[in-house]
Computed example of a mutant assay.
Amino acid sequence: MPTSDAEGKDWSLNWFRYHLPNTVTDVGPGEGTYAKLFRPVHEGVWWTGIEAHRPYIQRFKLKSTKTRRMYDEIHVEDVRESEDHLFHRDLVILGDVLEHLPREDAVALLERTVEAGAWNILVSVPIVDSPQGEVDGNPHEAHLHQWSPDDMDQVFAGLGGRVESMRGSTLGCWWWNRG
């Protein structure tokens, strides 16, 4: 769904405040949850969105205008085909995204994000059984992998750097830092 569970957002916001990134790539922004939450904390951030479903851009007014700031640039594409420079950011957000990819593609995306030079990565995924198919004609909304906290911990352990995590009742969040 293009929406996001409130669980873990306060935790994520605290890490955002701590690091205060100046450049952010938000993969699969949907309705723009993270931009709405984080922008008021640090106004000078350049926000890039990578959204696979073009109708969401208009529906959720993701593109910044003179009167409203959301995303400074939007790329409409499957993140697996995005250019590496989009991941050379102070923060890359993969909020409620990795469950929409096969596990091997999700792991490859995380590895690629680190290799491209991301300083911080925020991941949020459901950690309870959450089957989901296509939503509103968007096949990218289907859940293709169910993550467990232990599985995600193992993936992050293989990336090096420092990791903080939060396990809620339905969502898990991980903040990776290049350290």
Rank of each mutant, 00 (worst) to 15 (best):
A118P: 04
R68G: 15
T113G: 01
L86M: 07
P40K: 01
F38Y: 08
I93Q: 07
S82C: 11
L94Y: 04
V27Q: 00
R80S: 14
I74A: 10
G30I: 10
E111I: 09
D26N: 00
L86Q: 06
M70Y: 03
L94R: 00
E77L: 14
A35D: 02
K66M: 14
A106V: 11
N22A: 14
P55W: 06
T23Q: 03
G95S: 04
W46Y: 15
Y34H: 04
Y71M: 06
V27M: 01
T25Y: 02
T113M: 01
R80L: 15
S64G: 14
A106R: 05
P21V: 10
V27H: 07
A52I: 12
V41E: 15
T65Y: 08
R89V: 09
T113N: 01
G32V: 08
R69M: 13
F38G: 09
T113D: 00
E104V: 07
N22Q: 14
H53V: 11
M70E: 07
P102C: 12
G28S: 06
G117P: 03
D84I: 06
V79H: 06
D78G: 10
H42V: 08
V97M: 09
K36C: 12
D72T: 10
H75S: 07
K66G: 11
V45D: 14
N22R: 01
F38V: 07
E77F: 13
H75A: 12
T33W: 07
L101M: 03
L98M: 12
V97L: 09
K63Y: 09
K61N: 12
G28Y: 01
G49D: 00
S64P: 09
L98V: 11
E77T: 15
I93L: 00
T65G: 14
V114D: 07
A108P: 03
Q58L: 13
R112W: 07
S64K: 03
R80K: 14
Y71W: 09
E73I: 08
A35Y: 04
M70I: 05
T25L: 08
E43Y: 05
R112Y: 10
T48R: 12
G32I: 10
R89H: 11
A116G: 03
W46F: 15
E83G: 03
G32M: 05
V79E: 11
R89T: 03
K61I: 11
D90A: 01
S82L: 01
E104P: 04
H88K: 13
